[in-house]
Design a protein around this nucleic acid. Structure first.
Lengths: 109, 109
DNA sequence: ACTTGACATGCGAATATTCGCAAATTAGAG
DNA sequence: CTCTAATTTGCGAATATTCGCATGTCAAGT
């Protein structure tokens, strides 16, 4: 894999590498939402939400639909959710791994 | 999703959010590799490779197997590769989107 | 035109990441 | 024990990210 492609992929993951952005994406699982709606749901300052949305937009992860003075955001590609689900599976596997390890230590003591 | 879980997920994606680390994981697709081997294959200073491996290790993404004075690294959970493949699909979808957009602009001019 | 509500953007200080270089560790050979 | 090769770690300067605050934009109502 050329370095250039690796850069591109890293940029993509960097866009996901922030708690607020993860929460925003999770909020968008069941349909589009306005900025205020996200801000209230997550209890995060509106300007901050808007900044994080700008980052997700820059990577084409979300798109905004303007309606009057509101902007409704949604995920541009539902495969994103599949990615998050696979990530969740990895977490679960690792948590199980840690739990087993703790149990073994317990049993050995 | 509680904020704590979002933090955890963000930490995970942060571990993937670096070109060198992406390249390392890609190198590990066909089995474990030593640090020198990775360093040469990627043409990256060995200390740097070791630092990036340490980050992947801290997130349980790779594990090292010590053999003599060598350390052979491998991916701890092959689901990681599935994740990278899903990410690749997302890129491809978006690239197609961009290509179509360029074609439309071309056609309209 | 003025105001209000919904978003976006600019700025800047605090914080975190990156990466080359030097030094430390560790295992095996002589 | 000494030397060497393989790997890790510490350090520090350059660079990037984060986030609150202030300001800017833009549409709709009055």
């Amino acid at each position: 894999m050329p370095q250039q492609v690796a850069n591109f992929k890293a940029e993509f993951f960097k866009a996901l590498a922030h708690p607020i952005r993860i929460q925003i994406l999770d909020c968008l699982r069941n349909g589009e939402k306005g900025v205020n709606e996200l801000s209230e749901a997550l209890q995060i300052e509106q300007a901050n939400v808007s900044q994080q949305l700008a980052i997700l937009r820059a990577r084409n992860i979300v798109v905004g639909r303007k309606s009057g003075s509101n902007v409704y955001y949604s995920v541009s590609d539902r495969t994103i959710f599949k990615l998050l689900d696979v990530a969740k599976n990895i977490f679960n596997n690792h948590l199980v791994g840690v739990r087993d390890m703790l149990q073994q230590m317990e049993a050995a003591s």
